[in-house]
């Protein structure tokens, strides 16, 4: 048996069958997937949340995770951000010819572990192999399905003046951990990606309060872009305090060195919540009990007027606008 992915692995023939039997099923086995029918048959029930996402991270293995873990967490978190309990995921692999099969299997195993941790099943999948150069090693596409518990009504449109803004932990860990591995940068850091499934954290938060109005995971574009989206969608302004935002010293230093701002760096295991002030302290305390919310903090407040505006009070007592991310963050010259 070859140790690299060949175009024939995506042909639908014998090799395709082999990769499913040897590399996918042993790790992802469940009664729905094992049927290998053309579609998964499921009975979710209740109000449904449905999402899709694609993953093209480079490098595919990075400190604290890999593209498989990222795909499961990203999809699970998207579902969790509307308050849903994630249940079923689909997973499509677009593989560049020549990818070592053991790397594929490492990714599949990571999918398995993360899915188990999040309590979701992979019930449908697909594999395509493209010519060398047609993809960068491995791209993943997912869909995710979850059910929304009664009473929860969470949306980016629902932030209300007076709401307290809570952040679940330190920002920028994922983006800087990945950047540290990039060709041409590879600086030494012990920093790990924060990549994590947040559905259990969200479920625990909802047990304490159904007056969580808005949840978002600040992935690409960072916290700044997420806050701007919420301010715009909800027609409110947001006031945050620089001092209250948890940032690791390593992230701060790396950002300084590269000319980046942690507010714009991607996270993969953090959430931002706007919560009715009466429940804010209780929700915060509950979050801090969860391993993914240990460093949670109240970072600001939703205000009336100036819809779409996000203002930060700096450590020096001055204030400044926090804008959306424009283009890719590029390191500066000097």
């Amino acid at each position: 048996m070859t140790d690299k992915i060949l175009l024939a692995h995506g042909s639908g023939g014998k090799l395709a069958r082999e990769i499913i039997q040897n590399s996918f099923l042993p790790a992802l086995s469940n009664s729905i997937l094992n049927k290998l029918d053309d579609a998964a048959v499921i009975e979710p029930g209740g109000r449904l949340a449905f999402t899709t996402d694609s993953y093209v991270v480079q490098p595919i293995f990075f400190p604290g995770g890999d593209i498989g873990k990222l795909a499961v967490c990203g999809t699970v978190n998207d579902l969790a951000m509307v308050g849903a309990t994630p249940q079923y995921l689909s997973l499509s692999f677009i593989i560049e010819e020549g990818l070592p099969i053991n790397e594929l299997e490492r990714v599949v195993n990571s999918v398995k572990e993360t899915a188990q941790a999040a309590g979701v099943e992979i019930v449908a999948g697909d594999t395509k192999v493209v010519n060398r150069g047609g993809a960068d090693k491995l791209f993943l596409n997912t869909a995710g399905l979850g059910t929304i518990p009664p009473g929860a009504n969470i949306s980016g449109h629902n932030a209300r003046p007076g709401d307290v803004v809570i952040l679940s932990g330190t920002i920028g860990d994922h983006g800087i951990a990945v950047l540290s591995q990039r060709e041409g940068l590879d600086f030494a850091t012990k920093l790990q990606s924060d990549c994590a499934p947040l559905n259990k954290l969200v479920a625990e938060m909802l047990e304490v309060s159904l007056d969580i109005h808005c949840l978002r995971d600040p992935t690409r574009g960072g916290l700044a872009s997420t806050l701007n989206e919420v301010a715009e969608q909800s027609g409110v302004s947001i006031r945050i305090e620089e001092e209250k935002i948890p940032v690791r010293e390593e992230v701060l230093s790396a950002c300084e060195m590269l000319g980046l701002d942690p507010l714009y760096i991607a996270n993969e295991g953090k959430l931002m919540a706007t919560v009715d002030p009466k429940d804010a302290e209780a929700v915060l305390a509950q979050m801090q009990k969860n391993e993914y919310g240990r460093n949670a903090a109240i970072i600001g407040e939703i205000k009336e007027g100036n819809p779409g505006r996000v203002v930060m009070r700096t450590r020096l007592g001055t204030s400044r606008i926090i804008d959306m991310l424009v283009g890719e963050p590029l390191p500066r010259i000097c």
């Binding site: 302004s237 100036n306 204030s319 804008d323």
Partner: peptide
């Protein structure tokens, strides 16, 4: 455009309104 350009700095951080 430039991360060190005055216009970009004024654009991103300019309005000193306390919201």
């Amino acid at each position: 455009v430039s991360s060190e350009g005055s216009c970009a700095a004024y654009y991103h951080y300019g309005e000193e309104n306390d919201g």
